[in-house]
Amino acid sequence: MIFEKEFIINPNYQLIEKGNFEWSSPSNIALVKYWGKKDNLIPANPSISFTLNNCKTITKLLFEKKFNSTEFSFDLLFEGKPKEDFKPKISKFLERIEKYCPYIKNYHFTIDTKNTFPHSSGIASSASGMAALAMNIMSLEKLLTPEISDDFFYEKASFLARLGSGSACRSIKGSVVVWGEHEEIKESSDLFGIDFSSNIHSNFNHYQDTILLVDKGEKQVSSTVGHDLMHNHPFAEKRFSQAYHNLSTIKGVLTNGNLEDFIKIVESEALTLHAMMMTSMPYFILIKPNTLEIINKIWKFRNETKIPVCFTLDAGANVHVLYPENVRVETLQFIKDELVGYCQNGQYICDEIGFGSQKLI
C-alpha cells in the first residue's frame, strides 16, 4: 500500500532555470460511477472507466525560475486567450499539491490549454484538463529528480490530478482504469487510478463511444456541488454499496466479454447516477427531454436488431453511445438516421477507447 507521504518530493532536488513541456490527456467515461467524496478528495466508492481517444485536452506548460518564491505565479491561456475565470480552480489545485511539489512556488508558469471538445458540457473537461496539467508538472519533477521510476511518475501524476478533479486520476494511463480501493482488485487505491487493461476481453478492443451533444452549454449544477450533496443523501450508503458490488461484477464481465451483462450494469449505473441527483436536497435534473428520447430509441433499436449498443451518461445531458467495433457501420447509420436530430445543431463526436496521456513535447 502506498501512503500520501511517499509522494512528497525528495528535498535534495536542484532547480533549473526554464523550459517547457506539452501533454495531451483524454477525457474518460465511467462505467461504474463515482458520486460522493470524503475528505481530501477521497472517493466515497470505487469506480471504473473507459479512457477515450479523441476527446482530450492539450496543455503546454512554460516554466521560468523566479526570485520571489512565497506565492504562486502563473498566466492561464485557454485556446490562446487569457481565461480569468479558470484561474481560481488552478490556484486551488496548486495549493493542494504544494505539499508534494514545493518547487512549484519557485517558478512562474504559463499554462496554455485547449480542448478538442466543448468545455463544461458533461464530457469531463475538468478530468482531461487537470490530468494534462498534472502530467506537465510531473515532467518538471522528473527533470528535478531524474531518479524517479516510470511507475512512480504515473502514480504521482494520477495522485496530483485527483487533487484537481477526482475523475482526472482516471485519465493518466491505461484503456480501462480503476480508482478506489476494492478488495478484489490488487493494488487498487483511493489515492490514484490504476491501469486495468491487461485482462480485458477482445470484445472490448477498440470499443466505440459516440457522444451525442444534446446540450453543449455549461451545466446548471457543477459536479463539485453534486458530489457534496451526497453527504446527507438518504440513499447514499445504499448507493456506495451498489457501486462496490457493480464493480465486482463488471470486473468479471470485462474479462469474460459478456456484452449482455455489460449493458445491464452500464445503463443501470447511468440511471442511478441521475437518480441520486433527482433525490438529493436540493434536488436537480441535468438530463433533458432529448436525452430521454435518445435512450428510448436506443432501447427500441437494440430490442429489434439484437445489436449490443447501450448508453451511459456523465453528469450532464449528453449521451455516450457505447458499442463494439464490429457493429460500427450499423450503429453509426442508426445514429445518423434516428438520433442526430436530438442533438444540439446535429452535433456528435465519434470516439473510442484510447490509452491515456501522451507527451507531445
Rank of each mutant, 00 (worst) to 15 (best):
K186T: 15
L273N: 00
Y207K: 00
G174W: 02
A236Q: 05
Y207C: 07
T291M: 07
N258L: 11
I295D: 11
N258V: 09
F159Q: 04
N232E: 14
G226W: 08
T291N: 02
N258E: 10
L259Q: 09
S175M: 05
F204Q: 03
K216E: 13
N256R: 13
I211L: 07
S175C: 05
T291L: 10
G257A: 09
F196Q: 03
G174T: 05
A168Q: 03
Y283Q: 12
L273M: 14
L259C: 07
S268F: 07
D215Q: 04
Q220T: 15
C169M: 04
N232W: 01
V225Q: 10
H182E: 02
F262G: 06
S165W: 00
D261A: 09
N232D: 15
E267L: 05
R162P: 06
L212N: 04
K216N: 09
F196W: 05
T279S: 14
L292M: 13
I185G: 10
L254F: 15
D228R: 11
I200H: 07
C169S: 15
A168P: 01
S167M: 13
L160T: 01
N199W: 06
L229H: 01
L259P: 01
K156I: 12
M276K: 00
K264F: 14
K264S: 11
I298Y: 01
W179Q: 11
V266W: 09
L213P: 03
E267H: 06
V214D: 02
N296R: 10
E155I: 05
G226A: 09
C169G: 09
V177L: 07
S223E: 10
V176S: 00
N256H: 13
H182D: 04
M276P: 04
P234V: 06
R239Y: 15
M276T: 02
M281A: 14
L247E: 02
S198I: 13
S248L: 10
S167G: 08
T224C: 00
T210E: 02
T224F: 03
E183K: 10
N232H: 11
G257E: 06
